[in-house]
Design a protein around this nucleic acid. Structure first.
Lengths: 108, 108
DNA sequence: TAACTATATTACTATATAGTTATATATGAA
DNA sequence: TTCATATATAACTATATAGTAATATAGTTA
């Protein structure tokens, strides 16, 4: 799949997906969820910002179908929506690494 | 490179890059530039919005180092910053396709 | 010089959203 | 029921930005 094949509606969907990922706090959440399912309070601890703020970011990631949640008692657990989300993150990291490597000759 | 290896500063850089790409008009510009260098007026024609707006979007993509420009007389030509930018776009499209395929069983 | 073309910038409106504080809701325990 | 915990939502401020119209700047041509 190359970019030139995409129609306008697909470009808009990609824009929505990228927008959900285009925030450092949300990337940090994705990073925390990369390895394991976590409850909100654990995500709050790992992301270093307030609970209300994390809750809003979790809603944004959920609306973009990048994460899902399940409730267990009073605790809500979040996890990546599927392995394809991990693959998307890997692709983006690979693209970023590629840019860094080519621009500055660094190997990360 | 996997997401869990990235430090905060790298996550912020990725967020900036993704933010630059997280707009349908800018994705359309990237799509138009995918195959060839284009001048602003050609980009305006292909993107379907005003010249001032395109000019602002081009500045945003330039600031994110995703595109570069050169002047030839009164005409300014824009092109992708390098092949690694194409690869990043391909990675993102692949990630998106993967999601669509897995979610809806569609093959695109 | 003046007139014309190509692009960038400014000023504006409308909308979105990141972060914070306070509050509401849901669940569980006593 | 009351109290405590976990999470979500509302209200607010501050900031960003998409789009548009008008203007400015740069280069070209006559």
């Amino acid at each position: 799949m190359t970019i030139e094949k995409l129609n306008e509606s697909e470009l808009s969907e990609i824009a929505i997906m990228l927008k959900a990922l285009s925030d450092p706090t949300r990337l940090k959440i994705m990073q925390a969820l990369h390895e394991e399912e976590l409850c909100v309070s654990d995500i709050v601890k790992s992301a270093g910002t307030g609970q209300a703020n994390i809750s809003k970011h979790l809603q944004i990631l959920s609306r973009a179908n990048l994460i899902k949640s399940r409730r267990e008692g009073s605790t809500v657990f979040y996890s990546l929506f599927g392995s394809f989300v991990e693959q998307l993150c890997e692709s983006i990291c690979k693209g970023y690494t590629n840019i860094i490597t080519k621009k500055f000759g660094k190997i990360k």
